[in-house]
Amino acid sequence: MGSRHVAETIDQTAYQERLDRIGEIFGAMMSTVAELSTRRCPYKNRFDQCTASFGCRNQRMAMDASQLKACGGDDQLDYRSAWDTG
């Protein structure tokens, strides 16, 4: 992708060790995803904004139209029931 690199050789085993480490980090993240998804919409970011590209009844207009909509969900009910499914 345009990077200039000298003739470097990567050992397959050494690379696999890196993939294993990434797998450990990502695997732990997926456990968090599973737990988190029971109580918080996965499209809701840390600023409580909605990142979904579809409609949802919990979306609230942002003051600045260029910003993401705010999420008005209280995380008490099943958030999926608010998503547009049409």
């Binding site: 990434i22 732990a28 988190l36 996965p42 499209y43 809701k44 840390r46």
Partner: peptide
Amino acid sequence: LIAGMAIVGVKFRENFIFVPEV
């Protein structure tokens, strides 16, 4: 890359960031 992602993993586990940030 991996060291950075290790911090991301901790922040996500502790709910400082969420799925969109990850």
